[in-house]
Design a binder for these strands. Structure first.
Lengths: 217, 217, 217, 217
DNA sequence: AATGAATGAGACTTCATTCAT
DNA sequence: CATGAATGAAGTCTCATTCAT
């Protein structure tokens, strides 16, 4: 299962298209780190420059504006890498033809949690900025509706046919599922910075059990 | 079930203790509105002053610093009103001795969703700033652990004894429940500003069904 | 020898002319204290109000402007009390018909040092502000030239006639004398706040000896 | 006898250590000029910027705070240049092995008065701020006690041995001498801005005569 | 490509002063 | 007389951005 670090991918991609320089890379690293920690608006370009060991002017030489630096960091993520990886992920997950919906979720979660762990910082930047920037929401919408919804609905339908899932409208099933996932991920990776989960496998069991069976005896 | 608007409560309380002036109230109103919309860091005091129809100096006369304005808006909320209302809520919910856990959740959700709807803006300010301010996290911790956890565990235990809930460690049950609720509320009131829920009762049924029975057939 | 505290005099005088109120007095006291300590420009009216236990507006009710408060404190001092006391002093000193110039200086110094000690704060305010305010210099000039010079020259001439003083132009004698006195007083009461002089009489002996005989063997 | 202008020295020194820019120099010049005239607290940074022909932000780029600008102007003076020049001065004065104490004083005064004349403004800034800033007093103390006292006591002792000075405790001799000098310099260069001394040599004669012989016939 | 210097715009904040009560 | 509230003007300082080298 490919869970390459997104920043590595970005570097790779950038190297092809734009010949990212050494200093440029340092700027991006520094920016992600500080944006994740303190948020975009609370971070000054001079701070980024210092953390990167670079002159402030260098940032503007490459990115023009501070806003554009943020977009240069986040947009490829949203527009390019996430969709591509989503495609890969789903085709991979389904090509293994998981026997049960539970197995499918387990594969999905394992993969995604690993992925988020590795890209925790850029992920934090994204989540935080989505709250303030209408543009990000707009960018996110098609991503969610086209990739996520599209694929998931198909999968849900398949498992419904197999008789594994309740007989409800697929969008409702999807929404409950996604809502829980969203709550799980944000509370774990955005709100609670300290890693409180020790046994990842046991945790996964509990999560899956809740999603599948709820809380009733 | 009392779901008084918090800002009204704040005004009431302030009138007793500190004789809030007319202009002061306008400042608070304007600040909440703009902070909620654009976030604390992206809002200038001159903007608040203009929106409030007040001189910028007036803000500082009453609140000293911009930071203190934020705290004056949010801290009473966290320290005072939320705990008090939580107490009221739980005692009320349990005094009605709900027949089933489902009934209990339904009462809780109805009450809280109404409450959040009415205080949407200040709620948004809180959630957004919790992400950036360690102080807020610190303020929130006892609130969550002492009020929420304490009460919930008791209730969960009671319904476990009645045989309505699965035989799992109560903290795990609580965590799954809260995680979903958190995801539900943030996605509904922070992320998606547009009200997409039309039939609140039907929505509630789906949510409860998911929490109780999960997705398995 | 009358060495009444100047502020007492001011109060007395004010009570006659302007019916100084209780609060007004508190303002003046506070202002003198803080001006002496931190200087006029570094003191805010709110600070004075707080120290005086009075509303800021009260200051302006009585003094109109901050500048005027300073002048109300200092000008009577310069225009009224100092001249009057100088007159008294000189007539008193000479009426005792001191046998020698040394005795005269001793009387003068004893009297003045006591006076300054008692009015240290207002004295500090004056000295500090003379540096920044041309108006004060202008106010001081006639005081110095008319009162001080006038009297002193007469006295110097008298003692020259008695053969006690060197045969130099009186203005030169005066200038040397005053220069030393000025240096002595400022260094003792403005620059070095901590009272380092323990034996006032012995100190006086040294000072007089220097003025009279210099440093040569 | 080297009586180089201190500001020139500062520039020279700065050029070696910190590459002072053209604009930076203009800021310093303007600041010294206005601080000397109106005092630190009565001078705004915008005023300095205008006088220097520089954007206000430029001041802060180089000096961070207004306070730091003052310190950057004055501290090198106190910590560095004055001590060094004092050393030079004393070694020079004594290497010429002045025949008499009078000759020594004459050399000293000539040198110092020239020095102060050339650095009148920065000198005024220093004297004015010493009154308000405890830090400055603290900075000045070792300067005075280690350089001035140390050297002077030695010299006084030497001339006492030669039988030229009265048989008094050297610290007392020193204090009288310094007190007069302090009075002389402050009254001449701080209080009375208009140059009233026309014949510098004749003036010097009078001063020395007073110090040596006092006022007695 | 990289940077040190410079800056306009605007941020937060202070302050002396006015006014209605 | 006294004051709490309010404010215009100005102050210090920050920041994203430009430019010459």
């Amino acid at each position: 299962m490919p869970s390459k670090n997104l920043i590595d991918e970005m570097i790779a991609q950038a190297k092809i298209s734009k010949k990212q320089t050494d200093k440029q890379q340092k700027v991006v690293d520094a920016a992600i780190k500080i944006f994740a920690e303190k948020g975009f608006a609370n971070t000054s370009t001079s701070e980024i420059a210092e953390e990167a060991g670079v002159a402030e002017a260098t940032i503007f030489r490459h990115y023009g504006t501070k806003d554009n630096l943020l977009l240069s960091i986040t947009l490829p993520f949203l527009k390019d890498l996430i969709p591509r990886m989503a495609e890969e992920l789903f085709s991979e997950l389904m090509s293994q033809s998981p026997a049960t919906f539970e197995q499918f979720i387990r594969g999905l979660l394992k993969n995604r949690i690993e992925f988020i762990k590795e890209n925790k910082e850029i992920f934090q930047v994204l989540v935080k900025e989505v709250m303030y920037r209408e543009e990000f929401k707009q960018e996110l919408k098609p991503l969610v509706s086209e990739i996520l919804v599209q694929h998931f609905i198909k999968i849900i339908e398949e498992f419904k046919e197999r008789g594994e899932l309740i007989e409800k409208a697929s969008p409702i099933i999807l929404r409950m599922f996604v809502t829980f996932l969203f709550g799980y991920i944000t509370s774990r990776f955005i709100l609670l910075t300290d890693n409180f989960v020790t046994d990842e496998e046991a945790e996964l069991d509990e999560v899956i059990d809740f999603i599948m069976n709820g809380l009733k005896k």
